[in-house]
């Protein structure tokens, strides 16, 4: 029987949650016995090759590309997990949520102290994804099945959750594994 598949992605995040996933250390060997990795920065598979059991989402939605990727994950994964504070509440990128997007872009491209932009314009290159009006937590964009908080969540938290899901058990995390920092 084919192994269940896992996909992961980092949207508006810092890859810290992926680092935490790698922090499960030698258990990663056990993990790849249990599962195959599909689309993920870990194996550099860029597009889904088929249906996945679990999708791990790091980061919130700050731009159109984040939304596209997240929706794609929702379509391909049976279970979606928001991993980390950015996916759950927008995290550090969401600090801009109380500032109008125009001000943010002007600061980034025109007025910031280190900006060198002779064109004096905010770029409109299609290669640069359009920013959203604010950073959205993932569960405001698609349905999310589980949340693993933390910045990043401890490796043990991710490990425990994955093992439980892959063995069809409820995720029951001990007190010390649910933290917001």
């Amino acid at each position: 029987m084919a192994k269940p598949k896992i996909a992961t992605t980092s949207l508006a995040g810092c890859f810290g949650c992926h680092m935490s996933l790698l922090d499960i250390d030698d258990r990663i060997l056990k993990l790849i016995e249990l599962v195959d990795f599909d689309k993920s920065p870990i194996d550099d598979i860029k597009e889904f090759t088929g249906r996945c059991t679990v999708g791990l989402i790091e980061g919130g939605c700050a731009n159109e590309e984040n939304v596209k990727v997240l929706q794609d994950f929702r379509r391909h994964c049976d279970i979606l997990i928001s991993v980390g504070d950015c996916a759950i509440n927008g995290g550090i990128p969401a600090l801009r949520n109380t500032i109008p997007i125009k001000e943010c872009l002007e600061e980034a491209y025109l007025n910031g102290p280190t900006v060198h932009n002779p064109s004096g314009k905010i770029p409109g290159d299609p290669e640069i994804p359009l920013m959203l009006d604010r950073v959205y937590p993932c569960h405001e964009v698609v349905k999310i099945d589980y949340h693993l908080p933390g910045c990043p969540p401890p490796a043990d938290t991710i490990w425990e959750a994955l093992v439980a899901l892959l063995s069809d058990k409820p995720i029951e995390l001990p007190y010390e594994l649910v933290k917001y920092d």
Binding site: I88, G90, P137, E140, Y146, H147, L148, P149, Y175, V178
Partner: peptide, 14 residues
Amino acid sequence: YRLGITAPKYPYMF
């Protein structure tokens, strides 16, 4: 933490 909340069920108001 004590009450086991992993994410609030209500939308953030920012």
